[in-house]
Design a protein around this nucleic acid. Structure first.
Lengths: 323, 323
DNA sequence: TTGTAAGCGTTATCAT
DNA sequence: ATGATAACGCTTACAA
């Protein structure tokens, strides 16, 4: 590993002092134009780049944004990377990606790691409330994405609306028996669905909430869950695309055609929805990440609660129920 | 942003000198056990983490692995992130992800950025040969993935074999008219296919190489390309999954059923293949990333050329041709 | 306009 | 076993 050049080296080559090189690099206007030109030429021909550790150490700014994501097996989170790398890069920032795998302790480790690296901001799709409190206590520059958490700066898709829109759409297609497959009873999407049902004075059966592991949804499990249903729904809403994929395979296995016999609507609108032609509730992930970077970089420290509108992407997996 | 604690602070609290704290942190055995315990307790209760910029500056090791990927719109590359983050994390390393978007200049910028950050290694899915030469000249600790480039340390899937395996499989299903959709004439996958054809003394028509932009494949373009065919093939091999997805939609639009009327085999085996039940040639991405990290961390500086075996994942998109 | 010098928080080399 | 002290490469007063 050849040793990198330093400002001292450049200074010697240019016959100036090291701070002058620093001034040139940082565009300080007090530098004599002639000197600037000479130094810049040498910098260019030598391919010099200032050492960022030294810079960080001195200036307390690393030009790094840390991103802690919930689950990189899920394409929804994976896709975020593309957008956040882009938005950060355009502003001269580099991203560090960390996967918490939904694990509280790992998440804490990642937070400490990022702090130690003097990152200029943290974007987090959170696992654990305590860890967020910890972040807040350190008054780190951070923003929560993907979840709505009162008292914290958040950028999230309104999943209550998402649930309502999903149910509303299926209802408009004449579906009254709608099941939701997802992680937990207090899921906000489920809440939205239930709210819509009660608005319409319809009953949402208990068994229509089908509880499954969202990070590790597997086919077999899903199959027995479906077996247990007394009143088989005419439409399914899934909490994410991976579940939708499994559900599709399972229904096919049972000889049920989508959308002829049964309708499916998923959340997240990843490439899976595109591939399978599944109607899906899209999070505006690009906007989410752009706004997140924006928030961090403007240094706007006031708490924000930015709710983004979910978008219904209609595809062929839902049809009008005739029978 | 609360100021982070330093070793000096801990030292004062523990009534020792700052270097002693450093010794404790780094597990230096020359520290008195009693002192060690006292210091460790304080470190723990204060939640102290040593500043990594200072560490990097002094030790010339950042504990960061830089990863430059070709195209984050392609799920093949996106999926790599999951594995590389995992493999790096397990070894105490953090990853910086950079997207070159297939752009030579951006790739160069990323390389400079990583160098300036004193990364301990670079994993690169390369765009440009000159940039690689630059890397090598600096004798950076790096490894090329996804491409076979003589004289450079590489870890790649043997795509020549991949092409042969693909053609062989379709041939075993009685297909003799096989088209390949991909980026360029000298594509190694295509070479493998052609080699298989000549082994079998079959003719591979010129028009069966269908040239398309792999990073930005779009439907319309594909449609006209198919229109131009004189001898319509009975099977398609696509250079990646995104093309396979577009092809699937296009063929469906033409009322052609997969696999009844036509067979499809793709490269990459991303979630798209899973979703669409497309037979695909899988790169062992997990192994690729694990080996890459391994190579970088063992500091084994000899050139390696590690070829990984492609794996044929059979699904329902290919059937025996009867007519 | 430019150079000198201090300091960021570590690690490593000395003494002691 | 531990404490001074220098050094890593940069930014930022301050002096000239």
């Amino acid at each position: 590993m050849k040793k990198n050049l330093t400002m001292k080296d450049i200074a010697k080559l240019a016959g100036v002092s090291q701070p002058t090189v620093s001034r040139v690099v940082n565009g300080n206007p007090t530098v004599d134009p002639e000197v600037r030109e000479r130094v810049e030429k040498i910098i260019l021909q030598q391919g010099f780049k200032p050492n960022s550790s030294a810079k960080t150490l001195r200036s307390n700014s690393s030009k790094i944004i840390g991103v802690i994501l919930f689950d990189l097996s899920n394409y929804y989170y994976l896709e975020m990377i593309k957008y956040v790398e882009k938005a950060a890069g355009e502003n001269g920032y580099t991203v560090i990606i960390l996967n918490s795998q939904g694990d509280k302790n790992l998440e804490k480790e990642h937070i400490l790691n990022l702090q130690a690296r003097n990152v200029d901001g943290i974007i987090i799709a959170p696992v654990d409330r305590e860890n967020l409190e910890f972040l807040k206590k350190q008054s780190e520059n951070f923003v929560v994405i993907d979840s709505e958490i009162p008292q914290y700066p958040c950028i999230f898709t309104s999943l209550l609306d998402g649930g309502k829109i999903a149910a509303q759409y299926l209802y408009s297609l004449n579906h009254k028996k709608i099941a939701f497959i997802g992680a937990d009873k207090k899921n906000i999407k489920l809440l939205g669905i239930k709210e819509f049902f009660s608005e319409k004075k319809m009953k949402f059966l208990n068994e229509w909430f089908i509880e499954t592991d969202t990070t590790n949804s597997n086919l077999q499990n899903l199959s027995t869950l479906l077996d247990n249903l007394n009143e088989f729904p005419t439409a399914f809403i899934t909490s994410n695309d991976v579940i939708a994929l499994n559900l599709t395979k399972e229904l096919e296995k049972r000889g049920l055609n989508i959308p002829k016999n049964i309708s499916i609507l998923s959340f997240d609108d990843t490439i899976i929805s595109t591939a399978l032609n599944i109607t899906s509730i899209k999070h505006p992930v690009d906007i989410m990440m752009t706004k997140a970077i924006d928030y961090l970089l403007t240094g706007y420290k006031m708490p924000i609660q930015k709710s983004l509108n979910p978008i219904l992407i209609k595809r062929e997996s839902c049809t009008f129920l005739t029978k």
